[in-house]
Simulated assay, not measured.
Amino acid sequence: MAMSMTQLGQDPAYARFLGAPVGEDRTGTSVSVLSMLARLNVDPWNEASDLAKMQEAPARQRLEALLARFEDVPTLLADQGRVASGLLAFLPNRAKTAGPSGNGSVAQSVKLPTGAPLYWIIAAALFLGWIVTLAQGN
């Protein structure tokens, strides 16, 4: 049976971003964001999560810096800004700053992940129950 991303503990919400192409390397192979980050020794899911939590400007700056470090795709040098903007659009639940609210403060919308922690708690409880049953010899 093939393992899915959720079975491996990786958030499928980032699949679109991580699967997006950044260009072709010198051998003509299409390189995805996931491949690029892995080649840069950066954890792809952690990076995607961090970028999704950042405001637009810092996220774009960070992604452009990663693109600049990645020399396997020669066409990235000229298109970093355009590629970064396109890739950031694939990130889910981007933290965005709204305009000033009625009291002059700036509201910020951050959507927390739902469900995933609950699944791990249930799985851990079932696993521990199984271990106890085995230990009792039943």
Rank of each mutant, 00 (worst) to 15 (best):
M1D: 07
M1K: 12
A2H: 10
M3S: 13
M3I: 08
M3W: 12
S4Y: 07
M5W: 12
T6L: 08
G9K: 11
P12Y: 03
P12V: 09
P12G: 01
A13T: 04
A13F: 00
Y14I: 03
A15F: 06
A15W: 05
R16L: 12
G19H: 02
V22L: 02
V22E: 03
V22Y: 02
E24F: 09
D25K: 02
D25L: 01
T27W: 02
V33T: 04
V33W: 02
V33S: 01
L34M: 14
L37V: 05
A38H: 03
A38G: 05
R39Y: 01
D43C: 04
D43A: 12
W45I: 00
E47T: 05
E47L: 04
S49Q: 05
S49M: 01
D50Q: 14
L51F: 03
A52G: 09
K53R: 13
K53G: 08
M54A: 07
A57D: 07
A57V: 13
P58G: 10
P58I: 06
Q61L: 10
R62A: 06
E64D: 02
E64V: 08
A65T: 08
L67K: 04
A68W: 05
R69D: 10
F70I: 01
E71C: 04
D72P: 00
P74V: 11
P74Q: 11
P74T: 11
T75R: 10
T75N: 01
D79P: 02
G81D: 11
R82S: 09
F90V: 02
L91V: 01
A95H: 11
A98V: 06
P100R: 15
G102V: 11
G102F: 13
G104F: 06
A107H: 09
A107R: 13
A107C: 03
S109E: 11
S109V: 15
S109I: 12
V110I: 15
V110T: 14
K111Q: 13
L112M: 14
G115L: 08
G115S: 07
A116G: 10
P117Q: 07
P117D: 07
W120E: 15
A125F: 07
L126A: 15
L128K: 04
L128V: 13
I131V: 15
I131H: 04
V132Y: 09
T133Y: 13
T133R: 14
L134M: 09
L134Q: 10
A135H: 06
Q136H: 09
N138L: 15
N138I: 12
